[in-house]
Design a protein around this nucleic acid. Structure first.
Length: 426
RNA sequence: GGAGAGAUGGCCGAGCUGGCUGAAGGCGCUCGCCUGCUAAGCGAGUGUGGGGGUAACACUCCACCGAGGGUUCGAAUCCCUCUCUCUCCGCCA
């Protein structure tokens, strides 16, 4: 959520920012409601003041045994008016809130202006796509041949777009989770968190999934609970409605969770393999920081995520999302894309964003400096470090051998019990 | 699932026979004083959000005692609903 005062005072700037996103918002209604809101508030507060003063007077008079009927009757009317005004105020406020919660974040100045994903500039590249002297297979073909992935049976158990791993495949997934968590906690200074995988609607609103993107979520039948689409939701909401001490900041959390996404509207895209599933595993990085440091923290976060790919020796590139491709809550986002040989292109494996105070304002996460008056909103950031299923896919494809086996990256072998390659029957 | 108890400021903890209680007291914290020594004592201050106001302060008004409703001239205090916590019983990985 943006700051109401800021939107009021910078209406044209906000309008322009939204246009860059390709999002035409109705700010006139906002402007109108907002002005009305203050009028209603003024009027109601004046009456409340009158009521407070007179009620006290009535109390005193009663003690002295005086008759208060006239005043009481008068105040009955005042209270009635207050009630009317307050309900109008509430209505008005919920109208404003509904506009505000649907407004996306304003892109940072360093976010390039562009219409869609074709205009995302490449920031850097690491490694070289491998040269195969044979036609590289897709990860789902490799996985099926090695009998470590089984999409048919997964479909039987549940439906399309669910994964089922066996043997070395299941172990590879688990090894990656541990590998990532160990690096982030042991070397990058993150605190490991294991949060609930189901959250309430307030948490979903706090991070921006609700109210606008409910169709992307799995909702638990007959409740206000949702399956998490990313650990970002429970982990960011750890500090919802809290005032942190400045000395605590920055706070770094990392969490492994499964993620559940309905993938509404993605029919026909990536129908095969591990790229786009209703359920997948992810190790997430989440930060709460002071506003003045948040862009340095974004660079560090990106590096922390990249480090995993570097250790796994997987070729990747980093892009900056342009305004037209930027997510709803983000001010700036880097995507890390890993090379997928069977597709001959880079595919997203991590998304690292600075949300500035957008989520903090929704979720009411502030900090206080001792000795100083008032509070400020923290800046929140998060990034995948990394999406585990897609990492498995990248390893299978990049490390495949001509004989159909898969070489396990050196750094990961200790996590695989010393296994060096995945071959049929392992 | 059944029975009961509770939720107050950064923390502990009064108030809960309705009326200067935004909230006693204590702890903590900040500033000052004192003390020749990392202690003790003394004094003052110390919530959040919003409206008005100011160059910025000051100042002023409104709201907030788990959340949301209700009763009343007036509610932390009475009533209802919900959420959470605790105790006992049952069930259970």
């Amino acid at each position: 959520m943006l700051e109401i005062k800021f939107v009021r005072q910078n209406l044209s700037q906000v309008q322009k920012a939204l246009e860059h996103r390709g999002d035409a918002a109705d700010l006139q209604t906002f402007k109108h409601c907002e002005a009305q809101r203050r009028d209603l508030l003024k009027e109601s507060e004046a009456l409340k003041h009158q009521r407070n003063v007179t009620s006290q007077k009535i109390g005193k008079m009663k003690k002295e045994g005086l008759n208060t009927d006239t005043l009481t009757t008068e105040m009955r009317n005042v209270s009635g008016s207050i009630k009317t005004l307050d309900s109008a105020f509430k209505e008005n406020e919920s109208a404003i809130k509904s506009i505000m919660t649907q407004l996306p974040n304003i892109p940072h100045v360093s976010t390039p202006i562009g219409a869609d994903e074709t205009e995302n500039p490449v920031v850097k590249q690491f490694g070289q796509p491998p040269n195969f002297d044979f036609d590289p297979l897709s990860h789902w073909t490799i996985g099926s041949q090695l009998q470590i992935l089984d999409f048919e049976r997964a479909a039987k158990i549940t439906g399309a777009r669910f994964p089922l791993y066996f043997g070395a495949g299941a172990r590879l997934e688990r090894a990656l989770i541990n590998f990532m968590l160990d690096i982030h906690t042991g070397e990058h200074g993150y605190i490991e968190v294991l949060p609930p995988f189901i959250v309430n609607s307030q948490s979903m609103t706090g991070t921006g999934q609700l109210p606008k993107f409910e169709e992307d979520l799995f909702k638990i039948h007959e409740s206000e609970y949702y399956l998490i689409p990313t650990a970002e939701v429970p982990v960011t909401n750890i500090h919802r409605q809290e005032i942190l001490d400045e000395k605590q900041l920055p706070v770094y959390y990392t969490a492994y969770t499964p993620c559940f996404r309905s993938e509404a509207g993605s029919y026909g895209k990536d129908t095969k393999g591990l790229i786009r599933q209703h359920q997948f595993n992810k190790v997430e990085l989440v930060k709460f920081v002071k506003p003045e440091t948040s862009y340095q923290e974004l660079e560090k976060l990106l590096k922390n995520a990249e480090e995993i790919l570097i250790r796994l020796e997987l070729p990747y590139q980093v892009i900056t999302l342009c305004t037209g491709d930027l997510g709803f809550s983000a001010s700036k986002t880097y995507d890390i894309e890993v090379w997928m040989p069977s597709q001959g292109r880079y595919r997203e494996i991590s998304s690292c964003s600075n949300f500035e105070s957008f989520q903090a304002r929704r979720a009411d996460i502030r900090y206080k400096t001792t000795g100083k008056k008032g509070t400020r909103y923290v800046h929140t950031l998060n990034g995948s470090g990394l999406a585990v299923g897609r990492t498995v896919a990248a390893i299978l494809e990049n490390c495949q051998q001509v004989d159909g086996t898969v070489q396990i990256p050196d750094a990961l072998q200790p996590y695989m019990g010393g296994m060096q390659k995945i071959s049929y029957g392992t």
